[in-house]
Design a protein around this nucleic acid. Structure first.
Lengths: 169, 169
DNA sequence: CCTATCATGTAATCCGTTACATGATTAT
DNA sequence: ATAATCATGTAACGGATTACATGATAGG
């Protein structure tokens, strides 16, 4: 039973959200992810249908389907799921993120920085403001984890605004 | 002829390297990518075999196979390939990168920041030093594009060192 | 000469994206 | 009522990773 599968970041996102939110449908997952997580790790909505299925088949979630009406699927994390999540949370890692910035890739291959920089500065400024507006809400509205990642996002966006601004001239 | 395919960042990496380096084998591509590009956009070596094949089938590259010995494949960019690369380089974009940092993902879901931060600080410091050593070589050894992305990498690593250091206590 | 490592390639799998489709709700 | 949008789901495709495999070269 429950063939063992590889758990990807996507898996942990589903487990994490489900653990915090309790039983949810894929659509609710989507909502949960979009809010804050989506800013630094976005998912396609289709993944929020297929991934829970995968996890359920392997025993990390239970699946309950509505009998009538929309026949929606509801997922809930199991003990096995909670354990997997907890284990993952405890493991440290020295893996570094990659930038994977398409604009930067163009620069690498010799694109003219000027026009690119103009658009990138604008886009990063907009994102930064969005984050700062959320941060102003105050800590009562944000759990500690999301709050910290928001700080990371703000710091990172500030750096990018600086970087592209320098390139703009 | 030459069914049209979707060009992904991977495609442009192959086109870009091939454009700069001239005719190359997948292994040489790998070397070319590893050096500097690999720091912010890494690829699996297998992709450097399959992607050129895909591009060649669509007319962006020519493929020449050694008749004897290792029967290695040599790829060269075509006029169509150069045009595609040039077009892509000219297009600006306001697409933003995502952080996609696994360590940060753990933080988001409530992992204890301390132990994670310790390892991350060390890893980011090491990367930063590696970059700074390259930067010290001076601009004669670095084309302008790679030099700019190196600067981005340095700025970004500094920011991450600051971020994780703050979390460490 | 043997072993380890580098160089080279293919195959299989699987995850992620894109596309397609339809059932509910809300707004006009 | 009708259109538009939100909510929900499946299917197909393709790119990326992993695993497998073997030929060359260098070091002991």
């Amino acid at each position: 039973m429950s063939s063992d599968i590889r758990l990807t970041p996507t898996s942990y996102i589903v487990l994490g959200v489900l653990n915090a939110a309790g039983e949810s449908t894929p659509y609710e997952l989507k909502q949960g992810v979009a809010v804050s997580l989506g800013n630094f790790w976005s998912l396609q909505h289709a993944q929020l249908y297929s991934e829970p299925e995968r996890l359920a088949a392997a025993g990390y979630l239970t699946e309950r389907r509505e009998e009538k009406g929309r026949r929606r699927k509801h997922y809930k994390i199991t003990a096995k799921g909670r354990r997997a999540l907890a284990d993952w949370l405890e493991e440290t890692t020295d893996e570094l993120p990659e930038l994977r910035d398409r604009a930067l890739l163009k620069i690498f291959f010799g694109a003219d920085p000027g026009p690119l920089a103009t658009r990138q500065v604008a886009a990063h400024r907009a994102k930064l403001e969005e984050y700062e507006r959320i941060a102003e809400l105050g800590d009562e509205y944000l759990p500690k984890g999301p709050r910290t990642t928001l700080d990371a996002g703000i710091a990172s966006e500030k750096e990018w605004v600086r970087f592209w601004s320098r390139l703009e001239k």
